[in-house]
Computed example of a mutant assay.
Amino acid sequence: MKIEKVHISNLDAIFSLTKSCAKHLIENEIFQWNEYYPSKEVLKNDIELNQLWKLVENNLIIGIIALTEIEDVEYKSVKWLTENDTNLYIHRLAVHPDYQGKGYAQQLMNFAENYAKEHNYDSIRLDTFSKNIRNQQFYEKRNYIKLESIYFPKQSEHPFYCYEKVLHV
Rank of each mutant, 00 (worst) to 15 (best):
113 E>Q: 14
99 Y>G: 06
10 N>C: 00
124 I>Q: 05
130 S>E: 00
51 Q>L: 01
89 Y>P: 02
118 E>A: 12
138 F>P: 03
36 Y>E: 12
58 N>I: 05
110 N>Q: 14
151 Y>C: 00
53 W>P: 08
25 L>S: 04
74 E>G: 13
153 P>H: 08
113 E>T: 03
95 V>P: 09
12 D>L: 09
33 W>T: 03
53 W>I: 11
112 A>H: 04
98 D>V: 01
167 L>G: 10
67 L>D: 04
143 N>P: 02
20 S>N: 15
64 I>P: 09
106 Q>G: 15
58 N>F: 10
137 Q>R: 12
163 Y>A: 05
66 A>G: 12
21 C>K: 07
119 H>R: 14
71 E>S: 10
69 E>W: 00
60 L>P: 04
11 L>S: 05
77 S>I: 12
103 G>H: 03
36 Y>K: 12
15 F>D: 13
98 D>W: 07
90 I>N: 03
54 K>M: 13
27 E>I: 09
26 I>C: 08
78 V>G: 07
22 A>L: 08
23 K>Y: 14
72 D>K: 07
21 C>Q: 00
63 G>S: 10
148 E>M: 07
151 Y>A: 03
115 Y>C: 11
41 E>S: 10
90 I>P: 08
121 Y>P: 04
83 E>F: 06
119 H>Q: 05
19 K>Q: 15
141 K>M: 06
73 V>M: 06
10 N>L: 07
83 E>P: 08
22 A>Y: 01
27 E>L: 06
142 R>E: 07
12 D>E: 12
91 H>V: 05
100 Q>K: 08
126 L>S: 13
23 K>P: 02
167 L>P: 00
166 V>Q: 01
112 A>W: 02
102 K>A: 10
1 M>I: 06
46 D>P: 07
131 K>Y: 09
37 Y>M: 02
101 G>Y: 10
164 E>D: 11
109 M>S: 07
26 I>F: 03
55 L>K: 12
146 K>L: 00
14 I>A: 01
143 N>M: 11
136 Q>T: 00
97 P>I: 01
168 H>Q: 11
63 G>C: 09
101 G>A: 06
131 K>I: 02
48 E>K: 10
4 E>W: 03
2 K>V: 05
42 V>C: 13
69 E>A: 09
116 A>L: 01
141 K>E: 11
56 V>S: 13
51 Q>R: 14
94 A>R: 02
19 K>Y: 08
71 E>N: 11
126 L>R: 13
120 N>V: 02
169 V>T: 06
81 L>G: 12
2 K>E: 14
122 D>K: 15
108 L>C: 10
165 K>P: 09
48 E>M: 13
116 A>N: 00
154 K>M: 03
121 Y>G: 08
131 K>F: 01
112 A>L: 11
78 V>I: 06
83 E>G: 12
109 M>F: 01
108 L>Y: 10
51 Q>E: 15
60 L>H: 15
69 E>M: 06
146 K>N: 10
144 Y>N: 04
7 H>R: 13
36 Y>G: 13
119 H>L: 12
22 A>W: 00
160 F>P: 03
58 N>H: 13
42 V>D: 15
114 N>I: 00
58 N>C: 11
32 Q>D: 11
131 K>M: 04
39 S>C: 05
116 A>I: 02
72 D>W: 04
160 F>R: 08
46 D>K: 08
155 Q>H: 07
23 K>I: 10
99 Y>S: 12
50 N>M: 03
